[in-house]
Write a protein that binds this DNA or RNA. Sequence first.
DNA 1: GTTAGCAGTCAAGGGCTTCGAGTGCTAACA
DNA 2: TGTTAGCACTCGAAGCCCTTGACTGCTAAC
Lengths: 340, 340
Amino acid sequence: MELSERKKKILQYVIDDYIQTAVPVSSKSITEKHLTTVSSATVRSELSTLEELGYLMQPHTSAGRVPSIEAYKLYVSELMVKEKLSEKELEYIEEAFTNRSKDVDDILKSAAKVISELTQYTSVALSARDSEEIIRSVKMFRVRKSEALLVIVTDNKLLKDSVIALPDGMTDDTLGELNQLLENVISGKTFNEICSMKFSETVEEFQAYKEVFFKVVEALREYIASEGEVVLEGEEKMFAHPEYSDIDNVKSLMSVVTSKDKLVDLMSADGKDIMINIKIGSDGYDDIPSDCSVVTATYLTNGVKIGTYGVIGPTRMDYKKVVSVLENVGKILESIVSKW
Amino acid sequence: MELSERKKKILQYVIDDYIQTAVPVSSKSITEKHLTTVSSATVRSELSTLEELGYLMQPHTSAGRVPSIEAYKLYVSELMVKEKLSEKELEYIEEAFTNRSKDVDDILKSAAKVISELTQYTSVALSARDSEEIIRSVKMFRVRKSEALLVIVTDNKLLKDSVIALPDGMTDDTLGELNQLLENVISGKTFNEICSMKFSETVEEFQAYKEVFFKVVEALREYIASEGEVVLEGEEKMFAHPEYSDIDNVKSLMSVVTSKDKLVDLMSADGKDIMINIKIGSDGYDDIPSDCSVVTATYLTNGVKIGTYGVIGPTRMDYKKVVSVLENVGKILESIVSKW
DNA sequence: GTTAGCAGTCAAGGGCTTCGAGTGCTAACA
DNA sequence: TGTTAGCACTCGAAGCCCTTGACTGCTAAC
């Protein structure tokens, strides 16, 4: 059943007010603040049909109304009026990303911080592992006598993670040859391709150090198989919201937020090309407490995932604010990365 | 005034019991569990003198006794009987550090995790920045056309943090020359020496790219000036302790734990060569809430700081357990690092 | 110095009452 | 048919009182 315009308006008022105040919304307050042309009794009867339709709930008989999960969903998809960020906020975002080292990890941290600061919710950033990303360069640099640092360059990233042990007596020249081989065989391919390749013929000419070669391949495979890095920001911000004055709620949210696995699970967007993804309430996600929402955005440049960012907080979340912040951060992020 | 043996024993019983149960300790429970030879009235009179001396407090008239900050201090320095870790626990520590990449950051994380798991408190690890550490090697590796990765090797660490922009048209040969210069001028010196050096003559021969040279020097100086990395583990563990069933306590502890500056401040050992450092209660440290304790250990190899590790939790902390865990982790850590 | 006995204190918890915000229902009106 | 005023009803929140029980401090005797 399609809701009448007035019902939609009233529902929107209830949700907006509730998001702001965290107090059940009464018929009287609606007629006072928004719908001054009708009486509270009229609103009351509208509210009671909205309740029958499953959009509103009463904590108890003599209380105002509180939105249901259904209502939040409708709100996000239809009712919500997106917020424009203030000049100050836009500047703040801009500033946070200028003069930043171009490292993905740094960007991850900055983004998490900005999002948490502007939304006042706990934010999560997850660096992406996109197996379709093209490897532009793989090189080993000798850092100690028998250790080399493996550096992988892709369009979006510069990885410098694995330290690889070199066999005794490997000369700089041999290392150079090996690097040349790596360049020839691996550069230009995606991680996926590397994973499915065999390399048996490729390395024939290089018997002596094939062991090291396979260590490199192994490191590439391990990288793409591993879950991305997770950054958390503003854990303490949850305390500002009244739902987390109850210790049990804090506990259950904390248990999610401190578990990397659960977070990765939550952040995995189930949408295809949907950029912004909203998970409300228990809604089938076992990992989040039932009164929790997660809003995430996955950013792409040139079709390659650069990361997933989001906030986690009470169902009564300021969705319009969060969505605006995520969209704006996304724009800047993509403009930075695409410059590389 | 020196306490009688019996008073010391009784005080120890009170503290041990209180650490375990979090409930004020009554005279009766002491005679039942520990001092079966005397009556509760006797213990009562001892307790009341211990209270006069400032070692014990009563939450209210008809409650048992609770240790004061003074009592905890005495406990830690004299009364406490150090705990031997179980075989299982020792194995757990051992295992956590085997098959680990030799990266300082990884070790930092592992250590924080182990400490938190074994003590069941929130743990903090702070990677040290020791300006007396000798730089063994500084090298730039070209990763993109106009970007080089700066890798710094010291006895204890492998740093690969800064990406340095190269001027257009810098050839590999020039980069090689620059690396040679870096090797000549910087290797073998401490960070401190680098900071106070001028380099004006050194680079005369290298006018063309002195700009890049100074970027490298700048990166070294920045590194040593920056505060170390902070790793936090087991934030959620604080909820297991009854003092943190009160939301306000959680808030105030969280506000410390989520602020890097405050943590760095707290972790800075004020001891000279004291390895284990205990800060109890408000005790002059503005940053910690008054009912908090911080126990830290600073580990050295070859006289160089490798990091500071510790736990933060309620004043009613299981000091003997924490100290044992920190000591054992320290041993393993040093044996690993000294192998490099 | 130690002990038994007893009176005194105080937090915790259960039950009771009051207060007020907000609703549902109904009858009347446009 | 939609809107409104009025009134009775409901129920959580907060305050209050009382009971209970766990301790202690004190005192007098050993």
